[in-house]
Design a protein around this nucleic acid. Structure first.
Length: 887
RNA sequence: GGGCGCUUAGCUCAGUUGGUUAGAGCGUCUGGUUUACACCCAGAAGGUCAUAGGUUCGACUCCUAUAGCGCCCACCA
């Protein structure tokens, strides 16, 4: 027999093992069934599972299990990401700490990469076991890693293809350089933090210019003003003047450009094109010189003369001091608040630098899409605009388009070691340098590979399809990319994928890049639907940060305490796509209570089967059904349909809520209670429990599977059961609706009246003795159930027997006081309110029916139904007015 | 500066073609050891659906404005 309380810990690991070993997660590429594929967004192979992963895994697993049970060939492909900068950063820091090596890069590329590989292998194992803990039913036999040989091959193939199409180019551009990590980062990887600094005003010839960064000003020889700025009307564009500057006299040139903001300070500024993106653009526009002031380590170069070699942080004060001595310092504003750019990985300050980098041209029109030659940007827009790809929630369409509109060329090279090395080789002989761009290294001596690696999103952008190519083809270079796709059954069967489920925070990083890479390379969309989940926040609505264990909930601890099912439910119910949700202990506990409720209801039902010696599934006889049976089957049919619809539309939370309510408030609270003391219909009980287990299985896979294993006659594992369809036939639940109405009414009566009242009602009421203990201060009216139920229920004699309640008329909801049990004044008040409401309702209905648009457009049956409703309501109103008079 | 949201019970949140009396969980209060479950059962209180206009027979829902909160992007010499 089952324990009195469900102890998730006791069962979950064993169940997972059983599923995995049975092969239930494995998708069959030769299956005739329609494919349904989800590529798991690969967690970074750097650490441990956090709540973001947990919500992702819960949602995806629900979708997959549902489709698998519905008879799709469901593939849920797991994997991990090498997370270039993030991982290298972590390992470099680790080496520093553990081996006390100041600059681990002195160990050399090979050694550092080996360290990273070891670290990654270790993290991957952690991640794998944690993904299992969530109950994730992914196909481990197809697990991939962004650094797999095949994925590396794909990366190279895409790079070469793009290069040949002229989409990849190399150029000198200003990049976001991180002197700490010694790499550049993409625009999207930057964060801005507020900082207080001093703001200095210096004399610059006849101008006064402001800056927070005097240390960059050595090479400034252009002063920019707005062309319409009246203060500087007397100067011509291109005019030069001599002036004294940090290290002596210079010749400065006046530039008129709209980039200068006349509202800001004096309206005049000097520019440092090498170290500022805006200044760089101004310089490009006017063909100005660009000079490097700061090296890649963050130290001043020889242009700084006496300050050369000094770290910028140190130099600032000394430069100001010098300028002050020269009488060029006008004033200093303390505590000037501005924002500075930092690298979101590693939090190092960003120092813009001009560097030679590889870029993807997003505007060049060379991509064939639907018979039109378009740019990458245009294809990205087109697939979403045409709804080939649907984004949930829809409003993210706008955000997506807005981002694309502002998209600039994508800088894909990174100066780090960990990642896919750029497939470009150089050979220098004398003055000339040969360049080879290819999937493989060129033949011959003297070639050196580009040391840079690719942005991590370049490889994960190909995730949906590169993971489906047969890995055995990786070193067969006689095959082109097209050949490989064609010769990979998995790709043929499972691509495009159906859903890409991920957090909205990586819509641009990743989702957009996948669309770009896949449409370009494969010629299809990567997925039909993008489901974006929100952030999980604390109870107070704050972001959970890893560094603060007080605010941060660890999914593994939750699983340990309440079970994976409870965690899954708590992350899915009460949240909708795109919206952040809050998670806290009581919430999870509430859903743990639900798993226990289900457990105990099952225990009760299984106990009944045991008493009746049931070893096989009892037959469901739809001919002899009690009122309660009819009612629950009617409800169950509706729940089956609605759950399925909600899940098909990816309204996961809605499905969860529906099932929660049905199981607890209908199946347990009414059906099981009513069945006590009655002769139970074993067939119906069995059918209900079985259906409930199947319906709930996608959401709470463990507890349902465990109960399933105890269900007599249940074949195989629940994970492989068929999703239910509604039973044929109509079930009339009105009798129980009435019962519920009456019971509720009686329950809310004064205790001493309850038994008397109950006895007057000819309905099966399950336990009279409950009524003795109800609160004594309750309103003393009997609220009878809906008339629609009454009219259908019971014999005439029974209706008569209901004594004071006999005033029940067809088709109306009615409230009747039981003689002597009721407070006349209160009843009057209530009736008046009812009449007011009803009047309003009638007005509404009348309006609706007089609305031409409604009458013309709505299906006839609905219009007819509305007319009937109106008639009923008018009749009822009459009765109530009559009743009020009689009081 | 450009864009996107949110505001519903004490708290956390659901709520789509506009339609009867706006729902749930938690919390609070009342009563209950009822053999499936105290991780439970029965009940109660609690709402001008942010505010003001508009459209409509009818608005939580559609439109406009305002306020507060938040997010994304750009910029900050």
């Amino acid at each position: 027999m089952l324990d009195k309380q469900y102890d998730a810990k006791k069962y979950e690991d064993g169940i997972y093992k059983m599923w995995e070993e049975s092969g239930a997660f494995k998708a069959d590429v030769n299956s005739e069934k329609e494919a349904f594929t989800i590529s798991m967004p690969p967690p970074n192979a750097t650490g441990t599972l956090h709540l973001g992963h947990a919500v992702m895994l819960a949602l995806e697993d629900i979708m997959i299990r549902h489709r698998r049970m519905k008879g799709y060939e469901a593939l849920y492909l797991p994997g991990t990401d090498h997370a270039a900068i993030a991982t290298e950063n972590v390992v470099i820091r680790k080496i520093k700490e553990e081996k006390k090596i100041k600059d681990p890069r002195t160990l050399g590329r090979e050694a550092v990469i080996q360290e990273i590989k070891d670290f990654v292998a270790n993290s991957q194992n952690t991640i794998r076991s944690q993904v299992r803990k969530m109950g994730t039913s992914c196909d481990w036999s197809r697990e991939r890693y962004t650094m797999d040989e095949m994925l590396n091959r794909c990366v190279n193939e895409v790079f070469v293809k793009m290069y040949k199409d002229g989409l990849i180019y190399r150029g000198h551009r200003i990049v976001n350089w991180d002197p700490n990590l010694k790499t550049n980062v993409s625009d999207d990887e930057m964060d801005y933090v507020e900082k207080k600094d001093s703001f200095y005003w210096f004399k610059y010839g006849p101008f006064t210019i402001g800056t927070v960064r005097p240390e960059t000003k050595f090479g400034d020889k252009y002063v920019v003003v707005h062309p319409d700025d009246e203060r500087y009307q007397q100067y011509e564009h291109g005019e030069t003047f001599e002036c004294e500057w940090i290290n002596g006299p210079i010749t400065a040139t006046i530039i008129k450009d709209k980039a200068a903001d006349p509202e800001f300070g004096t309206g005049a500024m000097t520019i440092t094109p090498w170290h500022s993106a805006v200044d760089f653009e101004i310089a490009e526009r006017h063909n100005l010189d660009k000079e490097q002031i700061i090296d890649l380590e963050g130290n001043l170069l020889s242009v700084a003369d006496e300050f050369a070699g000094m770290p910028i942080t140190e130099a600032r004060e000394k430069i100001v001091e010098k300028l002050d001595k020269k009488g060029l310092l006008v004033k200093v504003e303390e505590n000037y608040v501005h924002k500075v750019a930092i690298n979101s990985r590693g939090k190092g300050m960003i120092e813009p630098q001009i560097r030679e980098q590889w870029f993807i041209d997003v505007n060049k029109k060379v991509v064939q899409w639907k018979g039109v030659t378009r740019s990458l940007k245009e294809v990205m827009q087109e697939v979403v605009r045409s709804e080939e790809i649907k984004i949930l929630p829809e409003r993210f369409d706008k955000i997506y388009f807005n981002w694309i509109d502002n998209l600039r060329d994508w800088c894909i090279s990174r100066q780090i070691w960990w990642g896919h090395q750029i497939p470009v080789w150089y050979k220098t002989e004398g003055d000339s340098t040969d360049m080879h761009v290819g999937v493989q290294a060129p033949e011959g001596e003297g070639w050196e590979r580009d040391p840079d690696t690719l942005d991590t999103w370049f490889s994960s952008g190909s995730w949906t399809w590169s993971t489906l190519i047969d890995p055995n083809l990786a070193d067969d270079y006689s095959l082109s990319l097209e050949d490989m796709l064609e010769n990979s059954p998995d790709f043929q069967k499972f691509h495009p994928t159906q859903v890409l489920e991920t957090g909205y925070d990586i819509l641009f990083f990743w989702v957009a890049r996948m669309i770009l890479m896949t449409t370009y390379t494969v010629g299809t969309i990567p997925f039909d639907t993008v489901y974006l989940h929100g952030l999980i926040r604390t109870r107070e609505g704050k972001k959970m940060s890893k560094s603060d264990p007080k605010t941060c909930i660890d999914p593994l601890e939750v699983i340990e305490k309440y079970g994976a099912d409870a965690l899954r439910m708590s992350m899915v119910i009460g949240s909708s796509p795109g919206n952040d949700s809050r998670l806290y202990d009581e919430k999870i506990k509430g859903y743990r209570n639900f798993t226990n409720k289900l457990w105990n209801a099952s225990r009760f039902v299984l106990g009944i089967f045991e008493e009746n010696g049931i070893a096989e599934a009892p037959k469901l006889d739809l001919k002899n059904l009690s009122d309660a049976d009819q009612w629950i089957l009617d409800k169950l049919n509706k729940v089956v349909v609605e759950t399925d619809n909600s899940l098909m539309e990816y309204k996961i939370g809605e499905a969860g809520q529906l099932l929660y309510d049905f199981v607890w408030n209908e199946f347990c609270d009414w059906y099981l209670e009513l069945s006590k003391g009655e002769k139970q219909n074993l067939g119906v009980l069995y059918h209900c429990l079985k259906t409930i287990l199947i319906l709930l299985h996608p959401i709470t896979p463990f507890v349902t599977e465990q109960i399933w294993s105890q269900l007599p006659g249940a074949e195989g594992m629940l994970i492989q059961a068929d999703f239910p369809t509604p039973l044929e036939g109509q079930f009339d639940g009105s009798a129980v609706e009435l019962t519920i109405g009456i019971v509720s009414a009686i329950r809310s009566m004064r205790a001493e009246n309850q038994i008397e009242a109950a006895q007057k009602i000819p309905v099966t009421i399950f336990a009279y003795d409950h009524f003795e203990t109800v609160d004594r201060n309750k309103p003393d009216i009997i609220r009878l159930a809906r008339l629609s139920a009454l009219s259908l229920y019971g014999t005439d004699e029974e209706k008569k027997l209901s004594g004071a309640a006999a005033d029940v008329v067809n088709g109306m909801e009615i409230y009747i006081p039981l003689e002597g049990l009721v407070d006349t004044e209160k009843e009057k008040e209530r009736l008046q309110k009812e009449i007011a409401n009803l009047t309003k309702y009638i007005a509404g209905l009348t309006g609706k029916l007089s609305n031409k648009k409604f009458v013309q457009n709505a299906p006839e049956a609905i219009v007819e139904a509305e007319k009937n409703k109106l008639e009923e309501a008018e009749e009822k109103l009459g009765k109530m007015e009559e009743q009020l008079k009689n009081l």
